[in-house]
Structures are given as C-alpha cells and as structure tokens.
C-alpha cells in the first residue's frame, strides 16, 4: 500500500497531465453545438459580460458602412412599397368581383433586434454571440439575419445572451434556391474564405448564370422563404458528378457584423407538431389497420 502511494506521488505529474488531457479531449470530441452547456460557451455569463463591455466601445467603428447599407435597403424597400401598393390597388379592384380569404390572424414571422457582441471568422467552426437571450424571447434553433442576408442559427441561449452558429461553420447547412429558377440545394461553408460558401446538391439540369441571386428556400421553419443569401460566383463542379456545386459570394459581411435580427417563426410549433405527427404516422401501419 505504501509503495503504491509513493508510486502515485512520484508519478503524480503524469496522472495530472493525463487527467487534464482526457478532460480536454472530452470537450474537444463532443462537437454537437446544441448539446453544450451554456456556461462553457460564449453565451455564458462570464464571457458575455466581458464581450458586452468591450462591445460598448467597438460598436461605433462600423457605423458608416451600416448607415450606407441601411440607406440602400431603405431605398429598395420604398421601391417595393410602391410596387406593392400598385398590386394592392389592382387587387382591390378584383375584390369587387372576388372575395379574398384571409389567412390566419398571426403574422407568420416576427423579428427581435439584437447586437453582435462577439464574432469570429478565421476558425474552422465560427460562432457569434448576441446580446439578447431567453429573457427577450430568443430560443435555440431560431434563424439570425442581418440587413444584407442570412447570418446563422441560434444554438445556446443564456438569460441575456445567445450563441449563434455562424453561416461560416460547417455544422450549419442552409437550404437555398436560385431565385430565378427555383432549383434548390444546400449551402455550406468550405472553410476557405469568410466571404464565400458553396451551394451543393443542385440537380444537374439546373439553369443558372453567374450573378444569380441565391435565396432561402423556406423549406425549414427557421427562415422565411426568399431571404437573400448570396450571389453565384462560378461553377465549381467536377465533370463526373451528378450534382452541380456552385461557389457563392455571401451577401452578409461577416467581418463587420453588428446589428442582426433574430427571426421568430410564430407558426413553428404548429409546423413542428405536424411533422412530428407525420413521423409518428410513418412508424405506424400506413393503412391504419
């Protein structure tokens, strides 16, 4: 017994070393971003407090660009309002002859404005932290957009902060379509460049041109359909493959992210309940007897 004890003391440094290496490896290889405890992410109290105070200073740096983007956005929206008003007038005329059936009273999407307090772009898995949390209505698996396009999806939520899986993270695949032709594929970051991603799994007969806009498909309950994501740069397809792979320039500028909106889908529970029902049904006998 004494010998065992002295052996442990003599080699204690190896035991300590192994212990910490094992803990580190456990943290390292448990890589599902949704299963992590909020305290060991940047949405935890410790990190988010530090980031918030630093952000009080740095948030002023990009105001010029943000302002320009907002002006442009505003102009586009005004043009859309004008077009929609025209449409509305036409519909009003039509309403004399036809009756429009109103949809459900709840607007399908609402938005929570948040501020990015931490952001990374140079790592293989990038995350950002925003200053709104469960107290503000943010929940895991909500989409995050900024004024230019899709930014990411919420993974962990603290009381007043949340960690978002950036689009620059291979854990996040986004269902997208080409705006002009409605062919859809899945957008994922390939780790090379923070301004580009690849759109994969497009059917071989897809029609596209360089410069086509890529928008969200709306097939998931996370993002509304038609949100801009990027612009086609070029074709990156291997000749022998059955699917197209396109390089896409992302519209959201991840190097200067500051104000973002968390997308709340008010019908998400309903959609989820329906698809859960579908899964249950498929487990049962499809003919019900």
């Amino acid at each position: 017994m004494n010998e065992l004890f002295s052996f442990i003391v003599k080699n204690s440094k190896w035991f300590v070393f192994t212990f910490f290496v094992v803990i580190s490896c456990m943290l390292l290889f448990r890589d599902d971003p949704y299963r992590q405890h909020v305290y060991i992410t940047s949405a935890g109290k410790l990190a988010s407090t530090a980031y918030k105070s630093a952000n009080n200073v740095t948030s002023y740096f990009n105001l010029h660009e943000i302002n320009e983007d907002l002006n442009r956005n505003n102009a586009e929206l005004q043009a859309r309002i004008a077009a929609l008003e025209e449409n509305l007038d036409a519909l009003r005329e039509a309403a004399f002859t036809d009756t429009l059936v109103p949809d459900s009273g709840v607007p399908p999407f609402s938005f929570i404005v948040a501020h990015v307090i931490n952001n990374s772009i140079a790592r293989p898995y990038n995350y950002l932290t925003v200053n709104k949390g469960s107290a503000d209505g943010v929940r895991p698996e909500l989409g995050v957009i900024d004024r230019n396009g899709v930014v990411g999806i919420v993974s962990n939520v603290g009381t007043h902060s949340a960690r978002v899986i950036s689009l620059l993270n291979p854990h996040f695949r986004l269902s997208c379509k080409i705006k002009r032709s409605d062919y859809f594929g899945s957008l994922v970051w390939d780790g090379k460049n923070p301004t580009e991603a690849v759109l994969e799994e497009l059917p071989r007969h897809t029609v596209f041109k360089v410069g086509d806009t890529i928008v969200t498909s709306g097939y998931s309950a996370v993002f509304p359909p038609g949100l801009p994501v990027g612009v086609v740069l070029d074709d990156d397809t291997d000749k022998n493959q059955n699917f197209f792979t396109l390089r896409v320039r992302l519209l959201a500028d991840f190097t200067t992210l500051s104000n973002v909106q968390v997308v709340v889908n008010n019908h998400a529970d309903e959609i989820r309940a329906l698809s859960a029902g579908e899964e249950n049904d498929s487990k049962k006998n499809p003919f019900g007897n």
Binding site: V21, S24, L28, S42, L46, S120, Y127, R163
Partner: peptide, 12 residues
C-alpha cells in the same frame, strides 16, 4: 475556449 467557443482545443 469558453470565450472563443472552441471547446477543448486550447485546453488540450
């Protein structure tokens, strides 16, 4: 790692 969301990388 807590600050940078890189669980385990820097710790190891």
């Amino acid at each position: 790692d807590v600050f940078c969301d890189t669980p385990g990388v820097n710790a190891l």
